[in-house]
Nucleic acid binder design. Sequence first.
DNA 1: CCCCGATATGACAACGGTGTCTTATTGGAC
DNA 2: GTCCAATAAGACACCGTTGTCATATCGGGG
Lengths: 334, 334
Amino acid sequence: MRVTIKDVSRIAGVSIKTVSRVLNKEKYVSDETRRKVEEAVAALNFSPSLAARTLAGSRSFQIALIYDNHSPYYIHAVQEGVWNRCREEGVRMLAQPVDVESPTLAQEIGGLIDETHVDGVILSSPVTDAPAALEELERRGIRFVRISPGTNHALTSSVFMDDVQAADDMTTHLINQGHRRIGFVIGHPNHMASDQRHFGYRRALDRAGIAYEPGLVRPGTFDFESGMEAAEALLKLSAKPTAIFASNDDMAAGVLSYAHRIGLDVPHDLSVAGFDDTPLAQLVWPPLTTVRQPVRELAYAATDQLFCPDPAIVHQRLQHELMVRGSTAPLRKS
Amino acid sequence: MRVTIKDVSRIAGVSIKTVSRVLNKEKYVSDETRRKVEEAVAALNFSPSLAARTLAGSRSFQIALIYDNHSPYYIHAVQEGVWNRCREEGVRMLAQPVDVESPTLAQEIGGLIDETHVDGVILSSPVTDAPAALEELERRGIRFVRISPGTNHALTSSVFMDDVQAADDMTTHLINQGHRRIGFVIGHPNHMASDQRHFGYRRALDRAGIAYEPGLVRPGTFDFESGMEAAEALLKLSAKPTAIFASNDDMAAGVLSYAHRIGLDVPHDLSVAGFDDTPLAQLVWPPLTTVRQPVRELAYAATDQLFCPDPAIVHQRLQHELMVRGSTAPLRKS
DNA sequence: CCCCGATATGACAACGGTGTCTTATTGGAC
DNA sequence: GTCCAATAAGACACCGTTGTCATATCGGGG
């Protein structure tokens, strides 16, 4: 049968409560006793029941990661970052996909919390900006940290990168290479980052004294298909762009694919830039110039915030990095 | 504070136990009573504590998905499949990454089970073939189902596709297009599927009366880099292959990338084939001819097996599909 | 009309830990 | 030598459910 604290206490020759103290690293346990208990725990290969700890105590040793993001790469990186920090803490991570559009979002999150008693929650974009979710968490007084939120929310901590600056940097990079007609593919409307990247693009143009042309800007949904469609629209213009900056790598791959299809040589006929630096960026030809987003680190830092006993509200910014690869090149003198 | 069964029972005017009965859909509850309880549950927005249910009852309403796979696409698809079936069942999924190579693998899994009391486990490759993991699960008498195991194990259910046949099909496809010198990139040695795909390649050659040339076969590790390296080695041979079949899409993308780099035109100078049909296959140029592996369906079916009350051992095979796209073409007559 | 199995409900003790309170036992400071 | 705070350990109730057993009512066959 199951090994319980009782068994451990018998072997160690101490009370149940003392074993519990050792397990929880409490003060006021003699070294001698601690040693005996630890030996007994090891001998029996004892792992305490989370269910019992949760029920009796005030912690559940579990946190939830709530996400609704259709990019496997992104989710995977976030999960890894959160998980890495959790494992250091001896805490379990519950990965919880949701649908931000669902009218029952708040209920689902509330149910999750009631069922699991999680100690805290990590929110990943775009759930970071779903009012229903935020309200529910606040109503319950659950501590949570947001990864790359798009909206300000003074009352909770967050960890993010500067999407505006990053898009500005990339656009500036293209301008410095001599491009003047730079197409832009906007991201999914659900994600606030889409607006920010769009704004960064615009800001860089302004600064360089290049007029913003709505015709050079196309909507997208962060997926390959929408990148292809945007590229088609842009490249059929009579005044074609010489470079296209897509708001993420998947869409950039779509642009690349369409360019190949119509026989364009990237980067000589057309420069293409992406955003995120997912592994995909290096799996296409030519490898994508893109912005490295430190997703794993963001997730790790967010989880760290969650575990930090200091309840101060912190907004931590992590640095992005321009990854210049083969898909962009200086404009050919013609 | 927390809403408990007690509150529900008070509102509904019945005993705690009766509420519990309704929650668990037990027999012997009158329609009238069931209705009253359901109303009270809805009114209070009650969700039962999993911790308490686990502790008191014989089920935990949780299953674990254990994996160690470095392909985000694959993991994501598996998680989705398992999760979809879990949500129908009202069961929680614990996604648990592990390191198959770790000497403490069995301990970690044992600890997971002790801590969480999971009702069952889904194993994804390559954990499916880690003896330490299998032994631990058996010792504890936990029910588990394996997704795409590489080894036979008569005592537990599994869900899989026929890797040998699929690789055979792909190789045959290339042969039918006129290719005779077909390079092959083997997968990661940890994965049994690697051997099976390798074997399928060989079987197709045999049947077609083409000699197996060890020089045309290169080791790989399922990642982009290793695909590139293999391509380099193969394409520097004096007797170059006219087609390269890589054991997965990432490596095929590597082959593609190297081919582009040295100025080859795919598919006219070289045909390239992959395996898995990850989204990546359509994010490269030209889109990859590959084998669609029904990962989501496999995961869903495996979870279904786990929930099935019938304890019969079932080995369920799901069908693969050849996805012919632009990266392969008939050999040019020269 | 009586008895019995099927139906419907409740009382109460677990489940395996932690929180709180109580009870020694120390080792200085006065 | 006495007193008190700090240290060390145990007793016991309780967390929110489910399992088991007891009890009550109902409908139909003899």
